[in-house]
């Protein structure tokens, strides 16, 4: 009996590695993330301060993470606002409008899009987008080109295939019956899309957007390369801002002591953000898993 169970135990062991990884990851990040408060005695409320003055040699050292949190959210939201119409439009195109030949081009194109590594997007932003903004939109305040908008545009491109492919799946999952029913009632194709397909796929599209937001919040290098890394509360799309990921990327190798601890706290905040997104995605998907 015990021998018969061996395969089951071995495969279970392999699956449990995932849980072990999560537990370790949560443990390490939470442990290192609270050092700022536990060891260095920085009051928890201080991280909500808008002032980031981590240099222990200067006066008025303050570990305010608000600029990073606000920057992360701001860059993420604008990226989603730019990307969603394009991605959902493209997904609708592939699912509802495209003739076969066009679908045969669009689908592999999406896979190529997914495959392009994030440093490449960052490099592209750095060599093309940033100079472009500086030269052509300098009059709008893009003094250097490094800006909130640059970060969001690069991210918009990066999350486009994510949102597209998940919403495409949601559209395709709407039964063909529904479309024929609408068309047979004498509606146009757009009316069928607008009043039948979109409502039926709404949760799926929402999930797709949340996946896109998740990726946008967590992307580090591409954003860091174009955003300008200024620890200020974002007020203008044309000005440099920063994000949690960028700051960790930049400072991690040099920062020591309390400064370093603050970076781990940023990691913890990122972890909490992604946890929130996971729960949101679960909540959105609850209807489907029950069905």
């Amino acid at each position: 009996m015990a021998r018969l169970d061996a395969p089951r135990r071995i495969t279970l062991g392999a699956a449990l590695v995932v849980i072990a990884a999560v537990v370790l990851l949560l443990g390490f990040i939470v442990w290192r993330g609270v050092q700022l408060f536990v060891v260095s005695g920085v009051p928890v409320t201080q991280i909500l301060s808008p002032t980031w003055q981590p240099d222990p040699l200067s006066e008025g050292t303050t570990y305010g993470l608000l600029p990073f949190i606000a920057g992360t959210l701001a860059v993420m939201v604008v990226a989603a606002v730019v990307s969603t119409p394009l991605s959902v439009g493209l997904a609708l195109f592939m699912a509802e409008v495209a003739p076969t030949w066009a679908r045969r081009i669009a689908q592999p194109a999406m896979e190529v899009f997914v495959g392009i590594p994030s440093v490449v997007y960052g490099w592209l932003g750095l060599t093309i987008l940033v100079p472009f903004l500086r030269v052509h939109f300098g009059w709008l305040g893009f003094a250097t080109g490094f800006s909130w908008l640059a970060g969001s545009l690069v991210l918009a491109l990066m999350i486009l295939p994510t949102i597209t492919s998940i919403s495409y799946d949601a559209f395709v999952a709407v039964p063909a019956d529904m479309r024929s029913a609408s068309l047979a009632l004498g509606t146009t194709r757009w009316q069928a899309i607008r009043h039948v397909v979109l409502p039926a796929a709404a949760t799926g599209v929402a999930t797709a957007i949340v996946f896109g937001l998740t990726r946008a919040a967590g992307e580090a290098l591409a954003v860091q390369m174009v955003i300008g890394n200024a620890p200020v509360i974002p007020t203008s799309l044309a000005r440099p801002v920063t994000t949690l990921t960028s700051q960790i990327t930049l400072d991690m190798s040099d920062a020591t002591g309390t400064w370093n601890e603050a970076l781990w706290t940023m990691g913890l905040v990122l972890l909490l953000i992604s946890l929130a997104f996971v729960l949101l995605i679960r909540w959105l998907g609850r209807g489907r898993s029950q069905a």
């Binding site: 019956d177 024929s180 029913a181 009632l185 004498g186």
Partner: peptide, 17 residues
């Protein structure tokens, strides 16, 4: 679209929205 407004179709499998 004009034809289908004058000619309704009921499908084999019920397909309410």
């Amino acid at each position: 679209v004009e034809v289908r407004r004058k000619v309704g179709l009921v499908f084999q499998r019920p397909n309410p929205f």
